[in-house]
Design a protein around this nucleic acid. Structure first.
Lengths: 324, 324
DNA sequence: ACATTTAAATCAAAAAAAACTATGCAAGTA
DNA sequence: TACTTGCATAGTTTTTTTTGATTTAAATGT
């Protein structure tokens, strides 16, 4: 025989008042409900919890006194669990786990997380990086509540809300023959050697761009990291196509890169938040999304704008780097 | 909306197995039971606990992962409460509260408690002293589980099990005119001054003895403590009637007392254990009663026997005190 | 590509638990 | 002695839980 929290609640109230009737009043139930609950509990525990006094209530036995203490504690714990659940789903406190696609993560997330933590200091953010397939997989399994990624290869079970649009652009070494162009087409580029970011989803995306222009890319080098692609481009191994803003035009070895806009109708990449469809987000996640939107708007006004069109980028580069 | 321990149990099992079906199997309930319990819990907490996967179970959300941890803890606490109750009503460990009548308490209890604690070192005994009225009162209110007292003035709600019988005897100063008698009757004593232990129940008992012999006592002094009665008797203020064995024949000031048996049909006092009728005793109390019975048997073979008949007492006194 | 399997949600019906009203009973109170 | 108090019990009704059957939708196998 098992006891329930309700049994304990009834018992504790009766014990506190030394009265079944008063417990019933206070709990807004009938007197027999309390009475039978106590009987049940005595049966379940094998303890005699009360001494009954005719016409004047009841009083706890020594065993009952010992048992009521622990019972109160358990009820408190149960209430706390309820409150905890409530906190999890209403208060902006606790922890948030997100995954993000690696290209823009180091550009976007550090400042975003900083801003978020300033507003909600009680939140602990864990942000991991994964490729699209793993992002989707771990979202589905519940390892993360949210993902920041591109709207590519998403299954129908994943809901996507776009935030920023990134058109592709060309990245060249400063001394590349085409480095002085104000804009370029994929057709013009095709004959030059290209450095490819050889990641599952990115690879297919770049190929699709060339396909849409009916040309074929001349892949000279493949690299497995963005830093390596930048390094190869800056050192003249070829051009490359990027979507995420360049922001900083130096490769890790200090050599310079130039960004040039592309002509032609090319599908841009849309960065946004992905989550499981019809998934009820915690308020932490909701808050994170709105902070992200604010931050995206800010960035669109500053660094990202310069990047999106070559003019802006070159202006900012000329003013920031070449002039002084 | 409230959740129950059962809901938590179902949820935790499902979470542990990432499967409603397997949880149902393990808990020997149907699959819909688990399913609805989880739904209910999600409703009650406002949390999305699981991500559902068609045809391959479900997985905990980050919030669900946080919630399941605390849920497991609460379930453990609940189980522990059950075990605790079980311990209280089966294991000889914990605490025992008893009351005892003051006349024999300092003679009987110290050695009895020592013996009991040696066998059951995990028990903590609290033994208080009270007069009969308070003993009964506090038993009824559940302040104590057991009482050690005499079978006098007990209401029907109190169940009494006799353990030892104490006939009354006379206590005299060593130099009292009657000190050499081998036995005495109340009629012989009546003319001498008597020292009365002036306690509620004791008083009535001693009077009833005289009443049964159709004589009246000559109360010269009244005292409110046994030690004082012994002192007065030893210093020649009068004789007194005792029931509890003398054991040690010295008053607190070192003067000596002599014990002499009484003739005539005199109601003895029966010492025993009292508890509320139909009250389910804890195993600690049960164990205590059997230890008490053993100890009573031992004492009846030694000190108490010498006391009950004057011959034995004087022998032991002569051999122990006068000879060396 | 289609059938089969897997596993959760849903539905309606049955069973169990809990609640209520009314009543009984024993002791205290007027 | 009649009246009140307060817990226990009985019988009913309501609510909750459980269940078997069915549905749904994705994964798996041929």
């Amino acid at each position: 025989m098992h006891f329930t929290l309700k049994h304990l609640r009834y018992f504790v109230k009766a014990g506190e008042h030394s009265s079944v009737t008063r417990a019933a009043e206070e709990l807004h139930v009938s007197q027999p409900s309390i009475s039978t609950a106590i009987l049940h509990l005595e049966e379940a525990t094998g303890l005699q919890l009360f001494v009954r006094h005719h016409a004047q209530g009841l009083s706890l036995t020594p065993a009952g006194r010992q048992f009521i203490l622990k019972s109160k504690q358990l009820l408190l714990d149960a209430d706390n669990l309820g409150h905890y659940a409530n906190t999890l789903c209403t208060k902006i406190a606790g922890s948030l786990r997100i995954v993000s696609f690696p290209t823009f993560t180091p550009i976007l997330l550090p400042s975003l997380m900083k801003k978020f933590i300033e507003t909600y200091p009680e939140v602990n953010i864990q942000c991991d990086e994964s490729h699209q397939k793993d992002i989707i997989q771990s979202l589905m399994v519940g390892d993360y509540e949210l993902a920041l990624t591109y709207d590519l290869q998403l299954p129908t079970e994943i809901e996507f809300e776009p935030i920023i649009e990134f058109p592709p652009y060309v990245a060249l070494a400063k001394d590349h023959p085409l480095a002085a162009s104000t804009e370029l087409s994929l057709t013009e580029l095709a004959e030059y050697p290209m450095v490819l970011l050889d990641w599952p989803m990115s690879r297919e995306y770049f190929f699709s761009l060339f396909l849409s222009q009916d040309v074929e890319a001349n892949i000279a080098y493949r690299a497995q990291s963005l830093a390596m692609v930048r390094g190869l481009v800056a050192n003249g191994f070829g051009y490359s196509l990027f979507n995420t803003p360049l922001v900083n035009n130096l490769a890790l070895d200090g050599s310079e890169i130039v960004a040039i806009p592309l002509t032609g109708k090319l599908r841009p990449l849309r960065l946004g938040v992905a989550k499981i469809a019809h998934f009820r987000l915690t308020p932490i996640a909701e808050a994170f999304i709105s902070t992200l939107k604010e931050r995206a708007a800010e960035l669109a006004q500053s660094v990202f704008t310069d990047q999106r069109f070559y003019k802006h980028l070159s202006q900012s580069e000329e003013s920031t780097k070449d002039n002084p």
